[in-house]
Design a binder for these strands. Structure first.
Length: 468
RNA sequence: GGUCAGUUCGUCUAGUGGUUAGGACUCAAGGUUUUCAUCCUUGCAACAGGGGUUCGAUUCCCCUACUGACUACCA
């Protein structure tokens, strides 16, 4: 696998974009054999902007063999044509009315070029010929060459080819076996087939596979970079800051997605193994993925399912790894805690989390005393005699020494039974005082983690705060 | 407008000329839990429409509708 940078549009250069791509693949754990970021002894260049001389050769060769020609039409002139002729297309029907080496004398052409007048090299497409693209996903797609236009292959302005030429030349030179790209490329695939033919490389032509598009979660249409933050989910793998606008787009990584989960989710968008398995490691995917099982229709992002998948992956992580990550998060929140303590908490609450961030949501009460008490629970459970019972229970808890969750549980239950109290009511009030709401893991485990001293303290605060 | 492609539960999808059209996410109900979540069980829910071909079409063919991509000196 090769990482090649297709930066043939000098006007659209974005600094940092290349590094971003490298970083993304690194984060995902996808390695390349060759590429712009991997040193090579042969000195092969992997940025198309650095391979200018190579493409020029082939553009010249195409001119030489009459498969391409020079064109001098200015953007303004083309614009005029477009407005004059409905459905204007630079093809066999109009090329003889344009300013190019087919209509201009040889001398005139030479003259213009000597003067340094900007020009482009256009591909000469014969009308009325059926061109077949064999696609691993779409099958045979036949397009008549009459609907193709004389694509620009090379522009003198920046001495660079367009995607079409650069792509074919590089794929040939780099012996690329498979061209797998979005289906937005399907319409220009016949053009590429023709180009291979023109260059005499048809036998070495790579296999094509046009992937279905990723659609917006709401409505229809191709998922675009801007959809993400508008609808509150990431589209970028990593956070991206646009160097021109300064606009920041959130990334899957920053949202807490695990790279494996993202890869797994993406793989299932448009592909399935034909079995009921839906969790795959990267190496499993490498093993069983096949283009033949890719569907042709576009797929919408389902963030609920992506979240669920991330939950599954989080459950598979070791407590050790999760603790590392959670410790980082705690540090950000300016909370210091013993690693051993944090690890116990992680073990206790990991099943409630889909993202590392959720660990905080589910365990914040371990680190911070409740700032408020859930009103619904207070209303439903907190009775006049509650403070009295909680005070008694606090004493019972203190009497269990050394503290053991099981023993404490037994004794508290006994107290409730003796006084003929409502278990749910007392327990929830106790929980309310410690946690601030009716949620969280086993109460006595919480108490043992919190410590009896802190527990008693919280009970007192709750009694003082919650007054009816 | 033109060219090409697509259309199975809300979403991702499996599938076949004869199936109770399967799974997953979501949602709902129940169970577990003193709570919440997890978890378990059950349930809701689909072959775009119309013509053919056929004993029989979701499956094959045609048409229509809808959707999408492309239609740059961008990739």
């Amino acid at each position: 696998m090769i990482l090649r940078i297709e930066d043939t549009d000098s006007t659209r250069f974005v600094s940092g974009a290349e590094q971003y791509i490298v970083d993304t693949f690194q984060w995902l754990g996808i390695d390349f054999d060759e590429g712009v970021h991997i040193p090579n002894e042969q000195g092969v260049l992997y940025r198309q902007s650095e391979r200018k001389a190579i493409y020029k050769q082939y553009a010249d060769a195409l001119i030489e063999s009459g498969k391409a020609y020079y064109a001098f039409d200015t953007p303004e002139e083309l614009e005029v044509k477009r407005s004059e002729i409905p459905n204007f297309q630079y093809d066999a029907t109009v090329r003889m009315q344009m300013k190019n080496s087919l209509t201009l004398s040889e001398e005139e052409v030479k003259n213009r070029m000597d003067k340094g007048e900007p020009y482009v090299v256009r591909m000469l497409i014969q009308a009325g010929e059926d061109v077949t693209v064999s696609d691993l996903i779409c099958g045979e797609v036949v397009v008549n060459s009459s609907v193709l236009d004389d694509k620009v292959l090379w522009k003198s302005a920046d001495q660079l080819p367009t995607y079409h030429l650069a792509n074919i030349v590089d794929d040939y030179l780099m012996e690329i076996s498979h061209v797998i790209r979005g289906s937005e490329w399907l319409p220009s695939a016949p053009l590429h087939v023709l180009l291979y033919r023109y260059l005499g490389w048809e036998n070495e032509m790579p296999q094509f596979a046009h992937l279905p598009l990723l659609l917006k979660p709401e409505g229809n249409g191709k998922l675009s970079k801007r959809d993400g933050d508008r609808l509150g989910f990431p589209v970028f793998p990593l956070e991206w800051k646009d160097p021109h606008s300064g606009e920041i787009s959130t990334g899957f990584r920053e949202k807490g997605y695990f790279p494996q989960a993202l890869i797994n989710f993406l793989a299932l968008l448009g592909w399935n193994p034909g079995t009921e398995q839906e969790m795959f490691s990267l190496s499993e995917l490498v093993e069983i993925f096949s283009l033949e099982r890719v569907s042709k229709s576009g797929a919408k992002f389902d963030f609920e399912k992506a979240k669920w998948l991330n939950h599954k992956y989080l459950q598979m992580k070791s407590n050790d790894e999760l603790t590392d990550k959670f410790m980082d998060l705690l540090k950000e929140k300016q909370i210091s805690a013993e690693r051993l303590f944090v690890e116990k908490i992680v073990e206790l609450i990991k099943e409630r989390a889909s993202f590392i961030e959720d660990l905080w949501e589910a365990s914040a009460f371990f680190f911070l005393r409740p700032e408020s008490y859930d009103e619904g629970v207070v209303k439903k459970r907190w009775k006049e005699d509650t403070p009295l019972h909680l005070t008694e229970i606090a004493q019972i808890l203190q009497s269990v020494f050394p503290f053991q969750a099981k023993e404490a549980h037994t004794q508290v239950m006994k107290y409730i039974a003796d006084k003929e109290l409502n278990t749910g009511q007392i327990m929830n009030c106790l929980r309310l005082s410690l946690v601030g709401g009716a949620k969280g893991p086993d109460l006595f485990t919480i108490i043992s983690l919190l410590g009896v001293k802190e527990t008693v303290e919280r009970i007192k605060i709750a009694i003082d705060t919650i007054k009816k």
